[in-house]
Design a protein around this nucleic acid. Structure first.
Lengths: 221, 221
DNA sequence: GGCTTAATGTACTGGATAGTTAGTTGTAGC
DNA sequence: GCTACAACTAACTATCCAGTACATTAAGCC
């Protein structure tokens, strides 16, 4: 990436565009995810970095530009995971469970991503819709899922009328809800979603749920 | 409510505290639900009513007080619905489906409520947690659900290890997701969740999903 | 070692916006 | 028809905050 001299490494470089950008993105992710777009403060983001507000405008142009960069980087994470998931060596049922658990694990360990998606929906996806990465987001999720469904149907294991996006929705809704609505759920029902035992239980549960749905009334139109 | 004269009704009363309050709450619900708490503008809310900003402070004290009043009124709607739902005359499976469909219909027809819940979660439920109505929110949902589960288990129809809050979560997550994440879902996958055919399909689906879960491996510990 | 450009810092501005001050008017009760 | 209070209005202020003008410094290049 950076062309650093091989033998005389300065331990703290004073100018490093790459690192400054990344530091700003990290701070901005935290700020926007925890306060929303309108609630997020550019001054606050700058204060969390080792640089100044001027740099944010230098690299990202505007508050909106920064927010969009944050959003795009967050989406890139789950997209990469889905692309890297190799389930061809697993039977359809196990493959489906692996996909559900991948989603479960990602969403649980990336609350900032989930919160950013919530925030983006509050804004009617107006930022995401303008993003150049938008067209690359659908395929990874849908392709893996369609492949598993096709194999399952061919083997006579899964129902014929299951739709890939519906299955994606079942998995996403469950995994997103646990993280996205964690706070109101805990306030109302007094149950912490992130309790380790409960997490393990829910992780099994989403796999069960999807497989029960897919194997119900097999062969029916 | 208001002591209006019986025979000489003035068509447009110039002073009506009740109506002014309600008008402010309506406008504020729309504003906060569509722009978030920090993004919502008190001046904008005032402009949408037939009164002035001063009245908002007169009745609700602060922006936060207004927001909390909006949130409480929104929760009151679903709580009332759940309380009024009478499923004792239905067999457990039909009762469960009726509850799922009630939730589905409410969430689909009250997007502002769903958005407010999302917004409240962005804010770590800090407003809801201070609300005096908080203790009244859990019981209606849980009681109806527990009743149905008990009857289903007693009849040997439902699995023994099903937990009321888990079932609530399955139903809520699905119904909330469709509305809450509608915009990013449409942007990414090009599918409108509110299409009439798809809605009917999903409405059946959430009932199926819950019943398949509850009737799977019946009798197993 | 000077030239060029990318990277960085300081200090400011102007518009937006939550909240207030100081008043006015309608209406119920007598 | 007067009084007291609730309901209401208009105009203001103090602060916050996104974005900028301008100066400066490090580093690659020859």
């Amino acid at each position: 990436m950076t062309a650093a001299p091989a033998d005389d490494v300065t331990p703290e470089r004073q100018r490093d565009a790459e690192r400054t950008r990344a530091e700003i993105l990290d701070a901005a992710t935290e700020e926007f995810a925890s306060r929303g777009y309108a609630g997020g403060r550019v001054d606050e983001i700058a204060a969390k970095t080792r640089t100044t507000k001027r740099m944010i405008y230098y690299y990202f142009g505007s508050k909106q530009g920064l927010y969009l960069a944050v959003l795009e980087r967050a989406y890139a994470g789950i997209r990469r995971l889905e692309q890297e998931l190799d389930v061809d060596h697993l039977d359809p049922a196990r493959a489906m469970r692996a996909l559900a658990e991948l989603t479960f694990d990602h969403h649980q360990s990336h609350p900032a991503f989930i919160r950013l998606v919530s925030i983006e929906n509050i804004h009617h996806a107006e930022h995401l819709r303008t993003s150049p990465i938008l067209p690359t987001l659908a395929a990874p999720a849908v392709d893996v899922l369609s492949g598993i469904l096709d194999r399952g149907r061919a083997a006579g294991l899964f129902r014929d009328d299951a739709d890939a996006l519906d299955v994606h929705m079942i998995i996403s809704s469950f995994c997103v809800f646990r993280t996205a609505n964690r706070y109101t759920f805990e306030a109302i029902f007094g149950r912490d979603m992130l309790d380790a035992d409960r997490s393990a239980h829910h992780r099994r549960m989403i796999g069960d749920l999807v497989l029960e749905y897919l194997t119900a009334h097999v062969g029916r139109a």
